[in-house]
């Protein structure tokens, strides 16, 4: 079974499963860096996925679908930003409310617009294009793993790089980090913290829109109720875990993507579907546990060292 599982197909599935997580997590880490603990990504992905289908179906073009997705998520983000930045409401409560609202409104509109319950698929929904690199198909295994993925998979890699540069190498980035670490220092330096936070919320909205569009148009062209299926939450865990560093976050997202891919392939091997689907969740908890435990042990060890040295 081991050999059946650890094939290039697994890596290919990993890459595929990582993409929606990393797209949302990149957005989440921007708000995290700016001092907002954003847990609304789950709902934003869902709204993105739904509106991408609506846009794509009625406008007949997948990119118009993506644009509709972004606009819809930005609308939700505007609500989120108004509450969290302007009214200074509890981020946690607003995040939960947005998630539940997203769940309700997408199901409601699915019925209202398409008249169906559960899922909507149609050949008239345009899918996002796959990209094939001409030289890669000569190299068998790399071709299997890396080539002919949906376009957002490659874009997400680009975004990781861009966001890394944004955060650590640009004036906006230094302001974002200051907004999170010591907002008053930024405000007294003459920069509006609220403005910086709004910017990160907007960027997060765009990225969650991409994540949603990728989910509904990138692979299969359909929308199902609750389609984000916990990916937004896994993105939250990824951000916490990666401490807001895009490269680390990408690595962690890949780990979660790997377990997702594993679950997907396990189902194909006759493992009860439900057990397979437990794997990613427990991996997240376990991974978080390892990191937290290491931090605790590190402190304990440092304490012992100081005590030994000084007494």
């Amino acid at each position: 079974m081991f050999r059946e599982l650890f094939t290039p197909q697994l890596l290919r599935a990993t890459i595929r499963m990582t993409t929606p997580i990393i797209l949302a997590a990149l957005g989440g880490l921007l708000t995290y860096k700016a001092g907002i603990f954003n847990i609304a990504m789950e709902g934003m992905i869902l709204v993105g996925a739904f509106s991408a289908v609506v846009g794509g179906y009625f406008l007949g073009n997948c990119w118009l679908g993506v644009i509709v997705a972004i606009l819809a998520v930005l609308l939700i983000s505007a609500i989120y930003g108004f509450f969290v930045v302007k009214l200074k409401s509890n981020e946690f409560i607003i995040g939960i409310a947005i998630n539940i609202f997203a769940n309700g409104i997408t199901v409601y509109l699915l019925r209202a617009i398409f008249g169906v319950k559960g899922a909507f698929s149609s050949p008239e929904i345009p899918g996002l294009p796959d990209v094939s690199f001409p030289l890669l198909d000569k190299i068998g295994i790399l071709n299997t793993i890396l080539n002919n993925h949906s376009i957002f998979i490659y874009l997400s890699w680009l975004f990781v790089l861009l966001i890394y540069i944004l955060i650590y190498k640009t004036p906006l980035g230094i302001r974002i980090r200051a907004a999170g670490e010591h907002p008053k220092a930024l405000e007294t330096a003459g920069v509006s913290v609220s403005k910086i936070r709004y910017i990160t919320i907007i960027l997060n909205g765009i990225l969650c829109g991409f994540a949603g569009a990728h989910l509904s148009l990138g692979y299969l062209t359909l929308f199902t109720e609750g389609m984000s299926d916990g990916r937004g939450w896994i993105a939250v865990a990824t951000v916490i875990f990666g401490e807001g560093n895009p490269i680390m976050t990408f690595a962690i997202a890949s780990l979660f993507g790997f377990t997702d891919g594993l679950a997907f392939l396990l189902q194909g091997l006759g493992i009860p579907d439900r057990f397979a689907r437990i794997v990613p969740h427990f991996t997240v908890i376990f991974a978080l546990f390892i990191v937290a435990r290491r931090a605790v042990l590190k402190i304990a060890r440092k304490k012992r060292e100081v005590i030994r040295k000084e007494t």
Partner: peptide, 22 residues
């Protein structure tokens, strides 16, 4: 669609939070 109830429920929260904020 009965999911309207979900929409209403979550909006109650938003409004409660909004009014406290305002």
């Amino acid at each position: 669609p009965s999911e309207l109830s979900l929409v209403i429920q979550s909006i109650v929260i938003l409004f409660v939070a909004a009014e406290r904020g305002v």
